[in-house]
Design a protein around this nucleic acid. Structure first.
Length: 502
RNA sequence: UCCCCGAUAGCUCAACUGGUAGAGCGAGCGGCUGUUAACCGCUAGGUUGUAGGUUCGAGUCCUACUCGGGGAGCCA
């Protein structure tokens, strides 16, 4: 059936020819004797120009009253026109309504986030979510391609698991025929086993964490890719990670120019994502956080925020004055919409002003040995224009499986990758402890039940080798690359703490 | 779990210190031959989240609850 219809993305090949498009009415504007129907077919948007002459009065009237998101086929001649979205438009000769969509709830005007999440099944049709969906596809394709082309074997790890990879409190429990098991929060332990078979492997799938985290960077169900490599050291891992992330960014730049443009993403910042990334040790990071540089940086930022606030308030005051004056109704409406926008930005600026001193205090009083907090990561991330590796965290702050640094018993051979401009962590990884006795000691130190790790310990009993890997959060990566405020926009059907909409 | 903010028409928001609930979008009708979240005119649309309280009078003040947003801790 698809064959008989032309796709909007291919219109350039059909200039001056007659085609039939099949899709949904995205928006329409009608004048007395001419109508502009914006049709979307999943591959793009096309302006269809309907004139009374060629289509006749009856069809003209029917189309005039057609609701947004009604499905239809449209036949006409393709012609180039700069005034049209996509550069081509259709001079309509015929159209058939497949199914009307009266009362479609999402209008072209603004909506609140709660409303949109409740209507996510329909909101997926919007330009914004469509662009993100296309980019998500590119990111996932790039992930698989990168590993497949570099000799990695895909290993599917189980979703229902018995062993814990991370903190026990963050597990979702499953009643497995009466036995309490839980949903996987990482495939790492399994992928380590597979690395001893194939050398280089990766797993890629959904991950579940029952974290009580209500932030713009958290989902309870998210997608993570975890490569694991035998015979690798920390520097090797860092190189792999930076090449990997740079490859994803390059693929998005190459394949999603239009989508990035529609979303208003600054392409120049994406072009900067090239190796080598910055490298800091945890200790260097702590010194930066507690030092003058951070103090100055945050003070400068606060000053900038106050200026921003002042400018916003001036602008709002000005608009309010204009609004009270004698102007046309439509101008008032435009100002009202602008005011809503500005007030939202102002509220956000106020929050940042409020948080700035707290963050400054946390950073200044940071004690060596603690894990970096969200605000600390944000500060480091904001100071850089490219991703930053932070390596060699204190042993006590990190998971039992991370290998102790031979040169410094206090720290482990691990790293986090922080995306720049304040976005924060997108990767966490480490070299794994490969010595049987040391691993047992670490399990006991952290009061974990050693019974649960018998099979994992076998990997150290039978031909153990140095190995390591990392996990990259897909939604966080997409949110960073597309400059989204909240990662819930970056998965089709988000699951958040205490809230699953549809 | 803690802190802050919010809930008014289908949607997005107004309503100065308590005094008759408004506008745009969407819907319906009409007008307009090149529109770009088109525009112009008319019409319909409300027990102001729930339950109490203060008051001559509550959308506005107080208490509790429900739901939502933002932030913190923790993380990819």
């Amino acid at each position: 059936m698809t064959d008989s219809f032309t796709q909007i993305c291919d219109l350039a090949d059909f200039e001056d020819k007659e085609v039939t498009l099949a899709g949904w009415l995205y928006n329409s504007r009608a004048s007395g004797k001419i109508q502009f129907l914006i049709l979307r077919d999943g591959t793009g948007l096309c302006q269809c120009v309907v004139e009374k002459g060629p289509v006749g009065d009856e069809l003209f009237e029917q189309l005039k009253h057609l609701a947004q998101e009604s499905s239809l086929t449209v036949t006409g001649t393709v012609r180039a026109d700069q005034r049209s979205v996509g550069g081509y438009e259709l001079a309509v000769t015929d159209a058939k309504v497949i199914s009307p969509a009266d009362g479609y709830p999402i209008t072209p005007k603004s909506h609140g986030i709660d409303f949109l999440l409740k209507h996510r099944h329909l909101h997926l049709r919007s330009q914004h979510q469509w662009c993100i969906g296309k980019i998500r596809h590119t990111v996932i394709d790039a992930i698989r391609r990168f590993f497949n082309d570099n000799g990695f074997i895909l290993i599917d790890t189980p979703i229902i698991t018995a062993t814990a990879g991370e903190e026990v409190q963050t597990l979702f429990e499953v009643d497995y025929f009466g036995e309490p098991l839980h949903l996987a929060q990482t495939g790492q332990l399994y992928v380590e086993a597979a690395a001893m078979s194939f050398g280089k492997v990766y797993c890629f799938g959904p991950t579940f964490r029952a974290e009580k985290s209500k932030t713009r960077r958290h989902l309870t169900e998210f997608w993570m890719v975890e490569p694991e490599i035998a015979f690798i050291n920390l520097e090797g891992l860092l190189e792999l990670a930076e090449n990997f992330v740079a490859f994803i960014a390059a693929q998005v730049l190459q394949n999603n120019k239009n989508e990035l443009g529609t979303l208003g993403v600054d392409v120049a910042t994406l072009k900067k994502i090239k190796p080598p990334f910055y490298r800091l040790t945890y200790t260097e990071t702590v010194n930066i956080l507690t030092g003058q540089k951070t103090k100055d940086f945050l003070a400068g930022q606060l000053k900038g925020l106050h200026q921003e606030k002042q400018q916003l308030e001036n602008k709002i005051g000005e608009l309010e004055k204009q609004q009270a004056g004698q102007i046309k109704q439509w101008q008032k409406d435009k100002i009202a919409a602008e005011l809503i926008e500005l007030r939202a930005v102002l509220a956000e600026t106020n929050t940042r002003i409020e948080n700035n001193p707290k963050h400054a205090k946390l950073a200044a009083e940071f004690q060596w040995g603690k894990d970096l907090g969200g605000s600390d990561e944000t500060i480091i991330s904001q100071m850089h224009d490219k991703p930053v590796f932070v390596t060699h965290y204190p042993k006590q702050a990190k998971a039992f499986y991370m290998k102790t640094d031979g040169d410094n018993e206090e720290v482990v051979l691990n790293f986090d990758l922080l995306a720049p401009a304040g976005f924060g962590e997108i990767i966490g990884g480490s070299i794994r402890e490969d010595d049987y006795d040391l691993l047992v000691a670490r399990i006991n130190e952290q009061n974990l039940d050693i019974e649960n790790y018998n099979w994992y310990l076998d990997l150290r009993k039978y031909g153990s080798v140095p190995h390591g890997g990392f996990g990259l959060g897909v939604e966080r990566t997409i949110a960073w690359l597309t400059d989204q405020k909240h990662i819930r926009q970056c998965i089709p059907f988000p699951r958040m703490m205490d809230k699953v909409y549809i």
